[in-house]
Computed example of a mutant assay.
Amino acid sequence: MTTPVLDIRDVTKVYGDGDMAVHALRGVSLTVERGDYVAIMGASGSGKSTLMNIIGCLDVPSGGRYLLDGLDVGGLDERRLAILRNRKLGFVFQSFNLIPRMTAQANVELPLAYGGVKKDDRRRRALAALAEVGLDDRVGHEPNELSGGQQQRVAVARALVTAPTMVLADEPTGALDSTSTTELLAVFDRLNLAGRTIVVITHENEVAAHAKRVIRLVDGRIVEDRRTSGVSAPPPRLAWAKEGAR
C-alpha cells in the first residue's frame, strides 16, 4: 500500500486558556490518498481555516499527530518545515500573495529559486506553468498590470511549478468572477486527472462539486465525509507538472 499524502490522527487545536479557551478542532482524523481531490467545507467558525493552516504546516496542533507524505510534522523545526512546505505543498490563496514589482514570470520562478533550481530550468518551467493557466502573453507584466483573475492564475502557476505532492487551495475562487472561476476549476480538474492530489478549502458548492470527496466541518468536528462523482474534465496537458523541484 502507498503512503497517504495526509494522515491526520485525532488532531485538536485550542486557542487561549481556561474560560477563554476556544476549541477550534475537536479530535479531527482524516486520511487523503494520492490522487484524491478533496473539498473541505464549513461555515465561519467551523474550524476549516484552522485545519487548512495545520495541513499546510502554517500552524501546529494542540494534540494529535499529523503526517505529511509519511513524515511526522510534529518533530520538525522551522527550517525543516520551510523546506517541507516548499517541496511538498503548492499553496493557492484567495488574496493571491504575489510580490509587487516582480513580473509574473519572476513570481512563478520564486519557489524554484528557493529550491535551488538553475536559472534556465526556472525560466522554462515558469513559462510552461504560465502557459498552462493561459497567461503566456503576460509573462512580463507586474501584478498591478494584471486583473484580479489574471493575478490569481499567476498564483496558481506559482503553486504548480514545483510539481508539489499536494495542491492546497484556500477559497481560491473567492475573489474571481464566474469566467475566471470556470477556468481555474478546469485547471484543477486537469491536474487531478494527471494524478495530482488537491485539497480545497471552500464554502462554494460550485467548487466542491468538482471534488471527488467532500468533507464538512461543524464546530471543529467532521460531520460528513462522502464520495462524489466529481466533474468530467478535458484530457490533461501537464507534462511540465510531473517534473518536480529538485
Rank of each mutant, 00 (worst) to 15 (best):
Thr2Trp: 06
Val5Lys: 04
Ile8Ala: 03
Ile8Cys: 05
Asp10Leu: 09
Tyr15Asp: 11
Gly16Phe: 06
Gly16Glu: 09
Asp17Thr: 13
Gly18His: 11
Met20His: 14
Val22Ser: 15
Ala24Cys: 11
Leu25Glu: 02
Ser29Tyr: 10
Ser29Ala: 13
Leu30Gln: 10
Val32Asp: 05
Gly35Leu: 12
Asp36Lys: 10
Tyr37Leu: 07
Ser44Ile: 05
Gly45Phe: 03
Ser46Val: 04
Gly47Ile: 01
Gly47Asn: 01
Asn53Gln: 14
Ile55Gln: 04
Ile55Lys: 06
Ile55Asp: 01
Ile55Asn: 00
Cys57Thr: 14
Leu58Ser: 07
Pro61Ala: 01
Tyr66Cys: 06
Leu68His: 01
Asp69Tyr: 02
Asp69Cys: 12
Gly70Thr: 09
Leu71Ala: 10
Asp72Cys: 11
Asp72Pro: 06
Gly74Met: 06
Gly74Thr: 10
Gly74His: 05
Leu76Ser: 10
Ile83Phe: 07
Arg87Gln: 14
Leu89Asp: 00
Leu89Thr: 01
Phe91Trp: 08
Phe91Lys: 02
Val92His: 00
Gln94Tyr: 02
Gln94Pro: 03
Phe96Trp: 06
Phe96Tyr: 14
Leu98Gly: 00
Pro100Asp: 12
Arg101Gly: 13
Leu110Pro: 02
Ala113Gly: 10
Ala113Cys: 11
Tyr114Asp: 04
Gly115Tyr: 08
Gly116His: 09
Val117Gly: 04
Lys119Cys: 08
Asp121Ser: 15
Arg124Gln: 15
Leu127Asn: 09
Ala128Arg: 11
Ala128Met: 12
Ala129Asn: 09
Ala129Pro: 03
Leu130Lys: 03
Val133Lys: 08
Asp136Arg: 07
Asp137Gly: 15
Asp137Ala: 15
Arg138Gly: 12
Val139Lys: 08
Val139Ser: 12
Glu142Cys: 12
Gln151Asp: 11
Gln152Phe: 06
Ala159Ile: 02
Ala163Pro: 00
Ala163Gln: 05
Ala163Asn: 06
Met166Glu: 04
Ala169His: 04
Asp170Gln: 05
Asp170Phe: 02
Glu171Val: 06
Glu171Trp: 00
Ala175Ser: 15
Leu176Glu: 03
Thr179Gly: 14
Thr181Leu: 12
Leu184Ile: 07
Leu185Pro: 01
Val187Asp: 00
Ile198Lys: 00
Ile198Arg: 00
Val200Asn: 01
Thr202Asn: 02
Thr202Phe: 00
His203Asp: 13
Ala211Met: 01
Val214Glu: 12
Leu217Asp: 00
Asp219Thr: 11
Ile222Met: 04
Thr228Ile: 10
Thr228Gly: 09
Gly230Tyr: 01
Pro234Leu: 05
Arg237Ile: 07
Arg237Glu: 14
Arg237Gln: 14
Trp240Glu: 13
Trp240Asp: 13
Lys242Tyr: 07
Lys242Leu: 11
Glu243Gly: 06
Ala245Ile: 10
